[in-house]
Design a protein around this nucleic acid. Structure first.
Length: 505
RNA sequence: GGCGGCAUAGCCAAGCGGUAAGGCAGAGGUCUGCAAAACCUUUAUUCCUCGGUUCGACUCCGAGUGCCGCCUCCA
């Protein structure tokens, strides 16, 4: 396969074949990614409404855009990432009422929970997290502008966007104004001229939270906050706007309508939408009672396990979630971690200076080629609309090749591994680490990284030492007891030529 | 009803005009005190069905079947 590189270049005929290609929901095709301004990317992702616990669906969405963001940065772009919090909304008001608390308290509680879980999932922080309630002024400005231009009308203090005035309406969702199933009647007292019209501003009823506006006290409609906040932080045209597939209609369609009517500029260059999480092939919803919250999942499963599961499917495909799947993919993830641990062990035990310089063996040269190949394939996969399942394939190839190398060049030899061999293995470690980081996966499983576990690490060292002493004396009774007792605690010991490693089941 | 998506081995999942990546599970073998891990071999003459285009189709076109999502809050 030494000629592989030559083959590859001959396959790539045009320059435009190279470079990052992204599927754009607006044009429904993959396009070469070119931001407006050379290496700067402005990216907006619809955030959560903070009224309830985070679930797997949220996790998938934000992991998806986290990986996209990480890859853009890896590709040398400077990304300005904006993600909002909807902290005023009917559901928050409802919940506050139920619990007899202030809406602010509710919003803060779930905002904190959001960060707690997203941190566990290693989702990088956005550049800004604007909140709807802190941008009422900006929203009012846009609404007023839309009124002035004749795109909106006032009906008893409610301001509606008049959809028929915007000729491009439906260009994202393919939805026409008359496409509804006939059920949608104009609500009697709303004052809407057409069922398709949507609220920019809602006048408030007594006791509801309200802000002053030129049209009387009220609160913003759902869609306007995203237009106001995205344009405030990213300008009139965003490079990327992301969100879940369910947001395409009406939310994103309405964002386009109001933003473009107001700014007279294209609102978004690339629209990205992640696929949904289903449970037993059905949509996850409260009414079906099949919601998996992150809190529950993290009780028994590590965050990287969940993240890894998301990576096994393309971000635009639907993903069926289940605990069984989570366990299955853990085995795959462990395969990578097993190798990392093993390499570390070999490097630790190697004779540092050994015999000084010597020629690389054929096996070492071949491994180095495979490292480069894996990296190139990984990048090509990610360049193709962030194809993580394909990218994972290149990682697994590298893992297998490295294991084979270890088997032949390390395990098979009596003498200690010398510096030339460890240098090659170290390269694997570096590249593996780099790719894992790109996918947001920790290089060390999180179970061993928190504070309490630090002690555990030391204790495990002592235990394995004692056990290995017993083994050296062929005292299998004691050594096997230690192993089986640990096993019942969920800790698995693995004896290698170079020493013993352990991991959680 | 309108709009959109998907159908690839036991399961998950890439590929989308040049003859089926990868992972899990299974089987056999190697290594090992045993176990685990790891490695090797093996598991789709075939990609929902039927037509068509083509030298050639899982990949393109048409029809059909079956699932799913959106059209109401939603990642």
């Amino acid at each position: 396969m030494a000629k592989g590189g030559v083959c590859k270049t001959s396959i790539r005929r045009f320059d435009s074949d190279r470079g990052l290609h992204i599927y754009n929901s607006l044009t429904k095709q993959k396009e070469l990614f070119l931001p407006q301004e050379d290496n700067k990317v402005g990216m907006y992702v619809c955030g959560v409404t903070v009224y309830d616990n985070c679930h797997v669906g949220h996790a998938r969405a934000y992991v998806t855009f986290d990986i996209i963001r990480r890859y853009l940065e890896y590709r040398g772009y400077s990304v300005f990432y904006v993600q909002n919090f909807t902290d005023i909304d009917d559901k928050i008001i409802e919940r506050a009422k139920e619990e007899n608390r202030d809406i602010k308290e509710i919003a803060e509680r779930f905002t904190d929970e959001y960060f707690e879980h997203m941190d566990k999932l290693r989702i990088k922080k956005a550049s800004v997290y604007p909140k709807a309630t802190q941008h009422i002024k900006e929203m009012i400005t846009i609404i007023q502008g839309l009124l002035d231009k004749g795109y909106a009308y006032n009906a008893n203090g409610n301001i509606f966007f008049e959809v028929s005035k915007f000729k491009d309406y439906g260009k994202l969702s393919g939805r026409t104004v008359t496409g509804s199933p006939g059920v949608t009647q104009v609500e009697a007292d709303s004052g809407k001229r057409s069922p398709a019209d949507f609220a920019l501003w809602k006048s408030s009823k007594d006791g509801e939270p309200a802000w002053d506006s030129p049209w009387g006290p009220g609160r913003p409609g759902w869609h306007i906050e995203c237009s106001a906040m995205s344009m405030k932080y990213l300008g009139k045209t965003l490079d990327i706007h992301g969100g879940g597939q369910d947001l395409i209609f009406p939310h994103h369609e309405n964002e386009i309508a109001q933003s473009e009517s107001y700014s007279e500029q294209p609102f978004v260059k690339y629209w990205l939408h992640n696929g949904f999480v289903t449970i037993e092939d059905e949509k996850m919803s409260k009414s079906l009672g099949n919601v998996f919250t992150l809190k529950d999942i993290f009780k028994d499963h590590s965050p990287e396990n969940l993240r890894f599961l998301f990576l096994t499917a393309h971000y635009r495909s639907p993903m069926d979630f289940g605990i069984g799947k989570l366990k299955e993919t853990k085995t795959g993830l462990d395969k990578i971690y097993n190798l990392i641990e093993k390499i570390k062990l070999i490097i630790d035990r190697s004779s540092a200076n050994a015999f000084g310089e010597r020629q690389q063996t054929e096996e070492e040269k071949s491994l180095i080629e495979k490292i480069q190949k894996a990296k190139a394939e990984f990048e090509a996969a990610m360049d193709d609309d962030f194809n993580t399942p394909l990218a994972l394939g290149s990682i697994f190839d590298l893992v297998r090749d490295t294991n084979t190398f270890i088997k032949n060049a390390v395990d098979g030899k009596e003498e200690k591994v010398d510096s030339a061999a460890t240098e090659v293995l170290n390269r694997v470690l570096i590249v593996l680490g780099e790719l894992m980081e790109l996918l947001g996966l920790p290089v060390v499983p999180t179970d061993t990284t928190d504070r309490a576990s630090q002690h555990l690490t030391s204790i495990m060292e002592i235990l394995t030492e004692v056990r290995n002493t017993a083994r050296a004396k062929k005292n299998w009774e004691i050594s096997d007891k230690i192993r089986s007792d640990l096993d019942s605690l969920g800790i698995v010991l693995e004896d290698h030529r170079e020493g013993t490693t352990w991991k959680w089941k």
